[in-house]
Design a protein around this nucleic acid. Structure first.
Lengths: 238, 238
DNA sequence: ACTATATGAATGAACG
DNA sequence: CGTTCATTCATATAGT
């Protein structure tokens, strides 16, 4: 059975957003993050006193309402940098002490990203210490973690960057493509580029490291519009 | 610098988004809306009956959603984006943009397997490029796909083998566990113990939309998603 | 329909 | 630093 594939009719798939709109989105996400967090906290608290459930519930509903309205009406806001924290992760029931790999908390990630933006270079050792300290307030973390994170981040960025650039003057390897095989004008696997019409819908997000800011950052690159999902992590020609 | 990160500081403040990026934002928002919704419902169930498992999954459309839709529509109009109209209710649009995961075509798989046999190691960058080009004739594919494929292939092979080696008897599920228990991992990598609190524990079911348990699991850590600078105004518990 | 398995993708850590 | 490994997540498909 085919999905029908809904060939993206007119939309070539590019939208333009102003800063305000961007901010709005970011804010909204931030608001949601906050709400969710507190709902969870509430949930915890309720474990003991369920009597208050109803009350809190009502309060929350109001809160949500207010928040949404708020953000909806006041668009232009400075809003620091509410990074989106990926809502997914931690799958099955795991034993408490069975964690061996550091998993950055959303808050930590947010901070890290921010720092990374400021200074694309690897922070100095002292800086690392500093950052570590900062992040330690949001969860367990070590300097090694921070260091690794920056290293990885940097390497990845580079890869992605050099991978998307390919566009012109690259014909030597094209020799085979030109043979006009059944290039399947209708790519069923979809995936590669933005022409894949991604108007999906359901909610599943992934990748804790992709945030709005990152998107924006990427998007601001001169005519890059990097799809993220498929940034070649494997560099091509140097 | 090449990143072109002109944060809207002094830039003109116009971004271009691809459909994918747009979609991603929508997803993020939807995710949060869903989370809130389900959390709220969960609390309802908790206060009423302890047996809440699975009741709230597909739940209704709470005011969170209503508000969100309102916002989304608004945004969509501002953006002139026809898609952007209803990130939630459209839970049936599942099929449109399923550019989820690359699925190797049989022909591609065959080639990949063949190459893999020749060289058990991960091919070099150039090699990857070459392979990608080759496979591209059988369907859409990217270098990342190829790279991942080899990586996964290799890892999988290794794991399989090491799992069989210990003839000690695999009746225990420990076969895999032991493979990673003795590592040079830093002793410092420990997860905060706060997540030890089993919040959503019981209700472990798969939601067609999103696993609330997963979400909660991720968020339950203290101070995770909330940008502290904005937290105040949303703080309900003081 | 729900669950279980296979596997593509993401990422922290290690290696050279 | 750049590359590779190991582990985990998420999704697509198969099996009951």
């Amino acid at each position: 059975m085919e999905d029908g594939k809904f060939q993206n009719g007119g939309g070539l798939g590019v939208k333009v957003m102003t800063d305000e709109q961007m901010e709005m989105l970011r804010k909204q996400i931030s608001v949601y993050a906050t709400i969710c967090e507190q709902l969870v906290e509430m949930h915890k608290g309720l474990s003991a006193h369920q009597d208050f459930a109803g009350l809190f519930l009502l309060s929350f509903k109001g809160l949500v309402e207010v928040n949404l309205r708020c953000f909806a009406s006041d668009l232009g806001m400075r809003l620091g940098n509410p990074y989106f924290c990926d809502p997914l992760l931690s799958s099955s029931v795991h034993k408490i002490g069975s964690r061996q790999r550091w998993t950055p908390k959303p808050a930590q990630l947010e901070i890290l990203e921010q720092i990374f933006k400021q200074c694309n270079a690897t922070p100095g050792r002292q800086k690392i210490k500093d950052i570590t300290k900062e992040l330690a307030q949001h969860g367990q973390i070590s300097e090694t973690n921070v260091y690794n994170w920056f290293q990885n981040r940097r390497a990845r960025s580079k890869r992605k960057q050099s991978a998307v650039l390919p566009n012109s003057g690259e014909s030597e390897v094209e020799t085979e493509i030109e043979s006009f095989k059944e290039k399947k004008t209708k790519p069923e696997d979809s995936q590669p580029d933005e022409d894949a019409t991604p108007v999906s819908d359901h909610m599943y997000l992934h990748s804790p490291d992709i945030g709005i800011d990152q998107l924006v950052g990427k998007m601001e690159s001169p005519g890059s519009c990097i799809p993220y999902w498929q940034l070649e992590q494997y560099d091509l020609f140097g």
